[in-house]
Simulated scan of single mutants.
Amino acid sequence: MKNNLKIGTMLVLAISTLAFTTITDKKVDVVNSTVVWNGYKVTGEHEGTISLKEGSLTFNGDKLTGGNFVVDMTTLTVTDLQGGMKGKLEGHLKSDDFFGVEKHPEAALNITKVEGSNGNYKVTGALTIKGITNQITFDMNVKGNTATTALKIDRSKFDVRFGSPSFFNDLQDKAIYDEFDLNVTLKF
């Protein structure tokens, strides 16, 4: 009888906990969110922005549990150059030498695993660029209605080969490093 009472009590607690758990998808405000990229080469670096097309973060109560994002690759811009040099680099980055934006106008991230609590998370996701998907892991901080992350992407894993020392020998000072940075601030 006591065992039945204990089991019954535990079952009621488990059901009531599930009933009060709130899983919500919070839509990302793509206008007020920012994605800044930095690419590096032997002789310097370039910086720019790219816009989100859509996105959402999934929460269980106040704990991050998932999310999905689509990046509009056609919005890739260079912010450290002006005039003809700016246009030339933007065109080259959008070409098949780099991101092949005409054939691949979107990139996507699907969060598949989240570990952590209290706004500090280690996030694993499936990142798709140029139709190629690879797993990435990065740290994300969530506070209030803002999530931030700084992550490194290895472009060679997505067949972005131009100037890559992973694919070409003897590039010397024309080498463009494989990793580029994304600094992301999401508002939701």
Rank of each mutant, 00 (worst) to 15 (best):
M1S: 12
K2W: 07
K6Q: 05
G8K: 04
G8L: 13
L11K: 03
V12W: 06
V12P: 01
I15P: 00
S16M: 14
S16R: 01
A19D: 02
A19V: 03
T22Q: 13
I23W: 00
I23Q: 02
D25H: 06
D25C: 00
V28T: 14
V36N: 15
W37G: 08
W37D: 11
K41C: 07
K41P: 08
V42L: 04
V42D: 03
V42R: 05
G44F: 07
G44K: 11
G44Y: 10
H46Q: 10
T49M: 08
T49A: 13
T49H: 12
T49V: 13
S51H: 12
E54Y: 07
G55R: 10
T58E: 11
T58H: 02
N60Y: 00
G61D: 10
G61M: 02
G61C: 03
D62H: 01
N68I: 08
F69N: 05
F69M: 12
D72I: 10
T75C: 09
T75K: 09
V78F: 03
Q82G: 07
G83F: 06
M85S: 11
M85V: 01
K86T: 05
G87A: 13
K88G: 06
G91L: 14
K94A: 14
S95I: 08
D97F: 09
E106M: 02
E106I: 09
A107P: 08
L109I: 08
N110W: 02
N110V: 15
I111P: 00
I111V: 13
T112W: 04
T112E: 10
K113V: 02
G116F: 04
N118M: 06
Y121E: 05
T124L: 01
A126R: 06
L127F: 03
T128R: 09
I129W: 07
G131M: 11
G131I: 13
G131S: 12
I132S: 11
N134Q: 15
N134D: 14
Q135W: 00
I136V: 15
I136C: 09
T137R: 00
F138R: 04
F138S: 05
D139W: 03
V142K: 00
K143E: 15
G144Y: 06
G144I: 08
T146V: 15
T149H: 04
T149C: 12
A150K: 14
L151D: 02
I153C: 02
I153P: 05
S156C: 10
K157M: 05
K157Y: 01
V160D: 12
R161G: 05
P165V: 06
F168T: 15
N169A: 12
Q172W: 03
D173H: 07
K174V: 05
I176V: 15
I176N: 08
D178H: 12
F180I: 00
F180L: 12
N183A: 12
F188Y: 13
F188H: 06
F188N: 02
